[in-house]
Simulated assay, not measured.
Amino acid sequence: MARSGHFHLDARGHSVTVNIHNGHPGLIELLVDGKETGRAALQGNRPLLVTGELPTDPPLPVTVRIAPGPGTPRCTVVIDGAETLMSPRAF
């Protein structure tokens, strides 16, 4: 079963955060500048994509690839074609 996790990245002057919540049902939240812009149901250890956007002019799409397990969860973010590993943070 996937474990809870919290990941963060500062990108183009904006804060991008991913929260992985275990429970029934499990949930993944994508927050940009503290506002929820994407959400997905956690499905065990299956990898997921969550999409949102940066509030730029024009808005810039953000895709987060989440590997919730097995073991330690991992997240990468893709912005404008560039993929970056997100840093895990303590809750």
Rank of each mutant, 00 (worst) to 15 (best):
A2T: 11
A2F: 06
G5T: 00
G5Q: 02
G5Y: 02
H6S: 15
F7H: 05
L9I: 00
R12P: 02
R12H: 14
R12A: 13
H14V: 08
H14E: 08
V16K: 01
T17V: 12
V18N: 08
V18E: 03
N19Y: 14
N19P: 00
H24W: 09
H24R: 08
H24Y: 09
P25R: 10
G26N: 07
G26V: 12
L27V: 14
L27D: 12
I28W: 05
I28C: 14
E29R: 15
L30W: 11
L31I: 04
V32C: 08
G34K: 01
G34Y: 03
E36M: 15
E36P: 02
G38C: 09
R39A: 14
Q43W: 03
Q43F: 04
N45D: 10
R46N: 00
L48F: 11
L49Y: 11
L49I: 06
L49E: 10
L49T: 12
E53R: 13
L54K: 03
T56M: 09
T56K: 05
D57M: 01
D57V: 02
D57N: 11
D57A: 09
P58E: 06
P59D: 14
L60V: 14
L60G: 05
P61D: 11
V62P: 05
T63I: 09
I66V: 15
P68D: 02
G69S: 05
G69K: 01
G69F: 01
G69T: 03
P70K: 03
P70V: 10
T72M: 07
P73W: 01
C75V: 15
C75P: 08
C75E: 06
T76M: 06
T76P: 01
T76A: 10
T76F: 00
V77R: 01
I79C: 05
G81L: 00
E83P: 00
T84C: 00
T84G: 02
L85A: 14
L85Y: 01
L85G: 02
P88N: 04
R89M: 07
